[in-house]
């Protein structure tokens, strides 16, 4: 059972899946870290992005990886607009209102998708969906390998934006010291919207990476966001590094549990771990202690 011939591919596959989990979690944790709210619309927005990627191929014949180039800025704009013109104004500066508004948004988006597309599960049949890469110790699905590479690149770009650009510095400043940021001339409403936009853009990329090997229906996003939430808690609320490493870790846990407990029980391990983290280290692996 512990033979490396079985174990190594399971771990590698877990890392590949975990990277995309990490990307979904990255968006969630970024928004949490700056706006200090759990974005309940995250799952619904991921679903919307997956539908967008699906129909970009079905109707326009766009390959999902190509569609990502268009959908990423589009979802950035969507996220920016939602925060700036819907969530922000509707919240009237109260954090718990923001929470409720995102919850309402999730209900609206999911039901709109359900109304328009029905509850059917749809899949794309792409020529390369079942291509594999031989890495010596294992055969890995090509779309997942591509996904892994893209996630690392996105995380690096995001890190560079946060570390080096004026907007990135403003985002980090607002995250920790909102009043100080306002009094330094930073438009906090704009920074909130940019952050929400970045988080939503992460979802568009994740959707395009998932759609070649995954199916889409109006509730699909929730499954990912539940896992992503575990990752955010595991990695430390608001920690970008934590989200990525937590994602990889959760992917491996899920893969190994699937291997030893059976495919359908794979996710049990994630939630057992979630409870353990809450019990033993509530601030997460990379979170600051409260």
């Amino acid at each position: 059972m512990l033979s490396p011939i079985i174990l190594v591919p399971a771990v590698l596959n877990g890392l590949l899946t975990g990277a995309v989990y990490g990307l979904v979690a990255l968006g969630l944790t970024l928004i949490y870290g700056v706006l200090h709210i759990i974005n309940f619309a995250h799952g619904a927005l991921l679903t919307a992005a997956m539908f967008a990627a699906f129909f970009a191929h079905r109707l326009l014949g766009l390959d999902p990886y190509l569609a990502a180039l268009g959908l990423t800025p589009l979802f950035f704009a969507l996220g920016y607009g939602l925060q700036r013109f819907v969530i922000g104004p509707a919240a009237h500066g109260e954090d718990r209102n923001i929470l409720l508004v995102t919850l309402a948004l999730a209900v609206v988006i999911e039901n709109a998708l359900l109304y328009v597309f029905g509850a059917d599960t749809r899949t794309l049949n792409l020529a390369y969906a079942f291509d594999v890469v031989d890495v010596g110790v294992a055969f890995l699905a090509l779309p997942r390998v591509i996904g892994f590479g893209v996630v690392l690149a996105v995380a690096l770009v995001l890190w560079l934006i946060l570390a080096l650009t004026d907007t990135g510095k403003a985002i980090r400043a607002v995250a920790k010291e909102k009043l100080g940021a306002e009094l330094s001339g930073i438009d906090v409403a704009h920074v909130y919207a940019v952050t929400f936009g970045l988080g939503t853009a992460c979802l568009a990329i994740a959707a395009c990476l998932l759609i070649p090997t995954y199916y889409v229906n109006p509730h699909i996003g929730n499954a990912f966001v539940l896992v992503a939430f575990t990752i955010v808690v595991l990695g430390g609320m608001g920690s970008v590094t934590g989200a990525l490493i937590g994602g990889l870790f959760v992917g491996v846990v899920e893969s190994l549990c699937g291997l030893y407990l059976g495919e359908s029980l794979g996710q049990i391990g994630i939630f057992i771990m979630f409870i353990l983290v809450l019990l033993l280290r509530p601030s997460g692996l990379f979170g600051e202690r409260a």
Binding site: K169, R172, A173, A175, K176, E177, L179, G180, A181, L183
Partner: peptide
């Protein structure tokens, strides 16, 4: 401001 409000993480 009185609380200084510097950005501690920067």
């Amino acid at each position: 401001p009185e609380a200084r409000c510097v950005f501690p993480n920067l």
